[in-house]
Amino acid sequence: MAARLEIVSPEGLRVDGRRPAEVRRVLTRTGVLSQADGSAYIEQGNTKCLAAVYGPREPVKRAGVLHDRATINVEYNVSSFSSGERRAKLRRDRKLLEIGLMIKQTFETVVATTSFPRSEIDIYLQILQTDGGAVHTAINAATLALIDAGIPMTDYVCACSAGFVNDQAILDLNFLEESADVPTLTVALLPKSGKISMLGLESRLHIDKLEPVIALASDGCMQMKDTLDEAIRISTRNLAKTVLH
């Protein structure tokens, strides 16, 4: 067999020094944009995502109005400068549209849309830098931004990815690992109920291995939940301070 990258060394360390079940360092900030109703910024390793939420507000286009609930629009964008190689932006990249649609469907299940009939909620997700796991970072950022905007939700939506290589599952793949032909599964989960609201897998993974991978990804989601929760509590505490003084 030809020279193959060792995704997990026999010593149990991954290329960047993590162990298989460790997530990357996560940095979170909320309320980064003053114009938006809610916003958040997440760094997961070198993957950076900015989320802005507008609404609930009056729909810009009349056509999309629903009479019993609010519509959610998601725009998912990857900056052309986000990856090492600069890529010309396509006008309507179907890949991005699909991811946006997937995220939209994920949030429709948790956002209390019925409280805002005939209105719309717009979520703008901008990936500023990619190093693997852009989709799940974007979902986490959207959760934070929605909470920051004060939109009622039944639960957090926490997402994380996991892959399978050398007979073991690894958590939160970076770009190097993703591009080394490791099947990558992205899971979005509602931590309170433990229900999985989104599951994305684009390469082939043997059915026998699916369960351990989902289990590990869910575990990663729960870790993300703690991180997001922490971020929300800090921002709420700060908010409380400004209100009280």
Partner: peptide, 11 residues
Amino acid sequence: VIKVVKEHYLR
């Protein structure tokens, strides 16, 4: 001329 940025965790 591709710039590769990698994380490197110290333990």
